[in-house]
Every structure is written in structure tokens, then in C-alpha cells.
Write a protein that binds this DNA or RNA. Structure first.
Lengths: 352, 352
DNA sequence: TTGTATGCGTTATCAA
DNA sequence: TTGATAACGCATACAA
């Protein structure tokens, strides 16, 4: 679609310039509108010489197809809705960027919505995107509002979920096994000899990934006859500042933990900062672990032990699933993206 | 538009369920289609009792307006295109999130495009968004490809640019005065007594904000009879890892700088990490300053001196400008968002 | 205040 | 291979 010049969509500002239509191109090329349409959408169905003159007319007039008209006629929008909690989390920014690249290459655009951590709000966003016209919906996690689920089934548009892989997922999904990941992190600490392990995490009621990780944490503890002490669970989501505050809170509690798992790397970084501010040695006095494996976690001092995975991979695979549902045979299965324990300097055996 | 249930847009999957249309609602409510349309778009133009029964039918059928049809009829898409270099940069993620919130509240959706740092690619993205149908376009910076500019003027859709405020901007813009900000940072270092000042920055040919900052840097130096030594300009964009590598490069050069300004906080953080790895004291042996004022720059050790500003404010004001162009009188002027020098521990007077 | 008729720009169906 | 023509679903000018 050549670097066209005139398009639709804008308010006709003052000059009220008319949209260049298929008709205009047809007239200039001396053919019918349908031939122009075909020359653009199914070039092989039209004689080469005709196609050439059409293309010439197109670029001469700077014709750009009218998206809405096309969507109306084709019953398809070439647009995918993506709803994430927030772009401030590196992993979601990576997801969106990756999705956009993959879907863009296949001719789809991305319509973006933010949901915070509120499932009701997520459903509202979905309604908005749906009425805007989307061919598929990409969500984060597997817990969603009833009204959203109803909408999805009623409209029949494909839904793909991300960041949480599980066999019983309601939609095709691509993500990590959060429970196994949570377990791996705690097993690592247990192996080091820790017994008083705390967790800094989002409210599990609003975050099913966190809930799964917590299940993994509890499971690992239970397997060794231990449990998460109620005083050892502190809520705190996302930002380093929050991690700092949560760590401050935790350090004031009894019994004091010898290790802390954070469900986000930034929170872990904040926790370490707070420890330094209080002259609490990491990992001397307390071990700290993060989650996600963002680049920064490797550069801090000490470098942060974490469970790493690729949000970019999740985006790419999610795009594959979406395209399979839209243009393929719709049989592509959910995919588990691997995670890996990155053992670094912020965790060590507990002091004597 | 109640939490509807049935919408358009999806491929009709197998069952090929038909879209619920205005007509269906009209039939059920016992009125004409136009009355239904009015009940939804101009409720005050219809008798209360009628409106009620329409609304009832709407929710009964789970009617959701068909975006494309609506866009076609109204010649307006209720969609704003936003093209940014990358979501991996905190400031752009903040911009998008802020824009989305403000525009969403006004009934607009955000269609997102990523351009990297390539103006040609940005223009391609613009073409894609334009043909998807957007009512306005939000860009980053004031330097753009000719073809994009041509498209913009030909379509007549409003364009608003962000992050670079300048009087001679080709479109209404909202951002900081990058030149003044660059100058402020270097003045601070000069006041501390530095004379060998280096810069870690993106290639100015592809980044007009960086070019302006560099102009500010050079200006401040020139005012004191100094200049940027050619060996003291190292390219490196965005990520902490990149800042680390750039700093490594810089530390190997002659003459060695006593202070380094980075055009991004993450790069500054990376630079500090590299210094620590080499046992180069910050700010003892070399001062390091960042740019943007992301939260993390305050938490590092040492905390990073930076020029801070609010990308969220930029987003909010950009949304205001867009809405003014679309629904207002189109007279709202460009806005300069304030920046502030945050003097922190990473900069100090040079050693003897 | 409500209904009728028409247009929005494309694609798809069907003849030619 | 090409050209009429009928959808596609909604908004609006105009008539009632």
C-alpha cells in the first residue's frame, strides 16, 4: 500500500477535503471499482497491465484504503485488542512490544487497554475494545470477570491469555508455570538452609499469577514440614519504592525472616535498597530473591537471585496463537514458556 | 453502553453467529432503527419512556455498537494513533499509559505503533495507522520523515508531538525544553568545578531530543570557553547494559573525563555499575549524571543526579491538545512541561 | 419526538 | 478476467 498520502479518519477540518475513494481511482485508471479493489487485495486475479495502471492511479491520487469501510465489508478489523495491567511493569511493556511486532508483520494493528489490577475495570476495557472492533483479545492471566467471559463466548472472538500457563486454562494460553517457579525459588532458599522465609507480593485475590506462585511457595515449604508464617506475608506490588516500604514493614515484624522472596524484581531491588539503608547486610543478614529476570536485576549490588523468563517470547507465542485462531486451523496448543532459576549474589546460606 | 455481551469484529468462527444490529433492537423495542440510534447517541432527543424500552432491549439482546459501521457513518473513528520509539523506555510507557487514560475517559481508544529510532519506519507505522483509521496522531519529537509530514497535511488529521517543546515546532507540541535541560545539567557540573565533561547519548541524527540536549551541553561549555572533546562523546541508547558498555569505552579514552552526563537515567545507572566494577569511585573519581528522573535513579547508590520531568504530565497535556483539536476550538497552544535539576550524590566537585 | 430514505467506502456475489 | 449490484451496520437530513 505504497506510502500513500490521503486517508480517511480525520475530521474534515476546515477545508473539508473529500476522501479519495476507490471510485476516484477507478475513474482515473479507466476501470471499475471492483477491479481496483481486486488489484489491491487479490492482485493475481487481475491482468498485469490493468493492475499496473491501477497501481499508477493509486499512487498518483495517494489513495489509502478506508479502514472502517473495509472492516465493515469484510467483517474483520485487522485489529487485535490487548489488555494489560500496566505498562509500568517491564514485562508487560515487553509483551506489548513483542505482540505489536509479530502481529504488525501479519497485517494486524494493536488496540491497547490498561486494566490496573481490577478485574471489573478489565471487563470495561474489553467492552470498549470490542465495540471498537477487534478480531481477537489478548489478556494477562487466567482470572477474569464473569461479564468478560460472557462477552467473549457470545461474540465468539478468540481469546488468548498470557503469563500463566496451566492445563485447565479456560482459553489457549502462553506463559510460565508460576507454581513451579515459586516452588523453585523457595526450594533454592531451603537448600541453602533457610527456614524463616517471607514473601513480598501483590494481593493474590487480584492477581492469579501471584496466587499460583504463592501456592508454589507454600507447597515447597510444606514438603519440608514448614509453613509461611502469617507475619511473613507482606503485600506490595510492582515498583521499587513499594518494595522498599514493604521490606521496612517486614523488618519490623517478629519472627524476623532470614530470606525474602519478592514476586517482582523491582520490588526485590527496593527491598535490597531498604536493607542497605538500615545497614542490614544482603545476603549476610537476610537473603533476597526476585522474580522475572529483568536486566537490572543482574546489575545491582549484590546481583539479585531471580526466576527469569522471556516476556518477549510470551508475546511472540501469543501472537502465533492469535494468528492460528484467525488465519490458521485453530488447533495450535497452549505453550509453556520456560523459566529458569538465576542464582546470584543476593541469596546465600543464613548466618549462624 | 451497559456491559453488553454480543459484539462484532470476530471472525464468525464455526457457528457463524450473526451480529446483533440496531435493527434487532428496534424490532424488539417496537421502534425504528433511528430511534434506537438516537437513544444511544443523543438520549435527550428521545422521550424517556421510549428510551427506557430501547435500553431494555439493548441489554436484553446484549447489543454492542459496531465500531466500523459507526466510524463509516460518522466519518470519525474515536481512535487516536500513538507512535513511540519503544515501550522499553519508562518515559514512553508512562506517556502511553497517561494518554490512554485521558483519551479513554473522553471515549477514544489508542492504536499503538512502535518506530524504533528509524524515521522511515515511523512513517510506515503512520501509514498503517492511518489506513486503520485514526482521528489524530501523537508522535515523539519534532523530527519526522517527509512522507509522514505529507500524509499528515494531506489527510488533515491533527498531529501532536511530545517530549520536545520548541517555539518553531511544526505541530502543536508538549514537552520539555531539552536544550535548557542539557544546559542546566552541564552548568551544574561546571559550577562544581568540572572542565572535562563527557556525554553518553543516542545518535543525534536519529533523535532530535538528544540533539537539542547536546546543543545545550555545547552551549553551556562554550559560555565558559570550553568545548566537548571529540573523545568525550560516546553513543549509547536506553538500556543500563548499554550504559555500562559505553562507560567502559569512555574510561579507556584520553583525556579521561571528570564528569559524564548521560541522556537517560538507565544509561547513567549502567555507567555507575561499570565504575563500581572497575573500582572507579562515583563521585570521587568521576561524577555521573542522568536524565529523566525515573524513580530508580533515586534509589541507587549513590543516588543519581538527574534532570527530572513528568512523562505522565506530557501525556495528559498531549491528550488535552488532541481533544482540543478534535472536539474543542483547536486553539489550545503548545505547552512546555517543566524540568528540574535533581542534585544528588552521584555528582560532586572533581578530586584534586 | 419519531420514522423514512439515503449515504458512508469496501468487498463479495453473480453474470457477462 | 471484468463489471454491475447488493450487502455491511450505523448516522443523519428531511419529512411527518
Amino acid at each position: 500500500m505504497g506510502v500513500g498520502t490521503t486517508g480517511q479518519g480525520g475530521r474534515m477540518s476546515k477545508g473539508s477535503r473529500r476522501q479519495v475513494t476507490l471510485e476516484d481511482v477507478a475513474r482515473l485508471a479507466g476501470v471499475s471499482a471492483s477491479t481496483v479493489s481486486r488489484s489491491l487485495s487479490m492482485p493475481h486475479m487481475v491482468r498485469a497491465s490493468v493492475r499496473e495502471s491501477v497501481l499508477w492511479a493509486v499512487s498518483r491520487l495517494g489513495y489509502v484504503p478506508h479502514g472502517a469501510a473495509r472492516a465493515l465489508a469484510r467483517r474483520r478489523n485487522a485489529t487485535i485488542g490487548v489488555i494489560i495491567p500496566s505498562l509500568r511493569f517491564t514485562v508487560f511493556a515487553d509483551l506489548v512490544e513483542s505482540l505489536q511486532a509479530e502481529l504488525g508483520a501479519a497485517g494486524y494493528s494493536v488496540l491497547l487497554g490498561h486494566a490496573g489490577s481490577d478485574l471489573r475495570y478489565e471487563a470495561d476495557q474489553a467492552t470498549a475494545l470490542l465495540s471498537r472492533g477487534i478480531d481477537a483479545l489478548v489478556l494477562v492471566g487466567n482470572a477474569h470477570d464473569q461479564s468478560l467471559e460472557r462477552m467473549a463466548t457470545n461474540t465468539g472472538i478468540p481469546v488468548v491469555t498470557t503469563f500463566d500457563y496451566r492445563l485447565d486454562a479456560p482459553y489457549p494460553c502462553v506463559g510460565i508455570d508460576n507454581q513451579a517457579a515459586g516452588r523453585a525459588l523457595v526450594d533454592h532458599l531451603l537448600d541453602l538452609g533457610h527456614t524463616r522465609i517471607a514473601a513480598l507480593m501483590p494481593d493474590e485475590r487480584f492477581n492469579d499469577r501471584a496466587a499460583r506462585r504463592l501456592a508454589g511457595v507454600r507447597g515447597a515449604l510444606a514438603d519440608r514440614g514448614l509453613a509461611l508464617h502469617p507475619q511473613h506475608l507482606v503485600l506490595g506490588d510492582g515498583a521499587a519504592e513499594v518494595g522498599r516500604a514493604a521490606m521496612a514493614e517486614l523488618l519490623g515484624r517478629e519472627p524476623s525472616p532470614s530470606a525474602v522472596v519478592c514476586f517482582s524484581d523491582l520490588v526485590a531491588i527496593g527491598a535490597v535498597v531498604e536493607c542497605r539503608a538500615r545497614a542490614v547486610s544482603v545476603p549476610g543478614a537476610v537473603s533476597v530473591a526476585g522474580f522475572s529476570g529483568i536486566g537490572l536485576a543482574e546489575l545491582t549490588h549484590p546481583a539479585i537471585t531471580t526466576v527469569s523468563f522471556s516476556a518477549v517470547d510470551i508475546g511472540r507465542e501469543a501472537a502465533r496463537l492469535v494468528l492460528d485462531r484467525l488465519d490458521g486451523d485453530g488447533q495450535a496448543p497452549s505453550v509453556e514458556v520456560p523459566h529458569r532459576l538465576e542464582q546470584r549474589a543476593s541469596t546465600a546460606a543464613p548466618g549462624p
